[in-house]
């Protein structure tokens, strides 16, 4: 899954009828230090996330594995709202990881 921040909402009346009732949120991907990255996705909200909240997005066919998005043309779904993030193995810019 990817870490992201909800930066906006998308409303659409003319759309695939399977998507009626879906809440579309614009999520901008964040890196480990919460800095925004370039990629943004439109994700269906399944947990009641609001603008400004840090969320976790599942992508690909796994996004259809919820009661609402089942068999629908959806490839990104917000599945959690982050309370706390704890990076214990600091990224020391080394090319390899130390074990």
């Amino acid at each position: 899954m990817l870490l992201g921040k909800v930066i906006g909402t998308v409303w659409s009346t003319r759309k695939d009828e399977a998507l009626v009732g879906a809440k579309f949120l614009i999520v901008r991907q964040l890196d480990l230090d919460y800095n925004p990255k370039d990629s943004t996705v439109i994700a269906v909200d399944s947990v009641g996330a609001g603008v400004g909240e840090v969320v976790i997005v599942a992508q690909g066919s796994s996004a259809r594995q919820t009661t609402f998005t089942k068999n629908k043309p959806v490839d990104a779904v917000i599945m959690a709202i982050v309370d706390k993030l704890d990076i214990s193995v600091k990224d020391n810019k080394k090319k390899t990881v130390d074990v």
Binding site: L32, I56, A80, V82, D83, K84, V89, T96, V97
Partner: peptide
């Protein structure tokens, strides 16, 4: 991958409750 951190999220899709969410660096 290597586990480099952990995430806590109380509000989440109910089917994933009970599982720890970890940050993984692919290697």
């Amino acid at each position: 991958g290597q586990v480099i951190g952990t995430i806590w999220a109380t509000k989440k899709y109910e089917a994933v409750t009970g599982y720890k969410m970890q940050f993984v660096q692919p290697i």
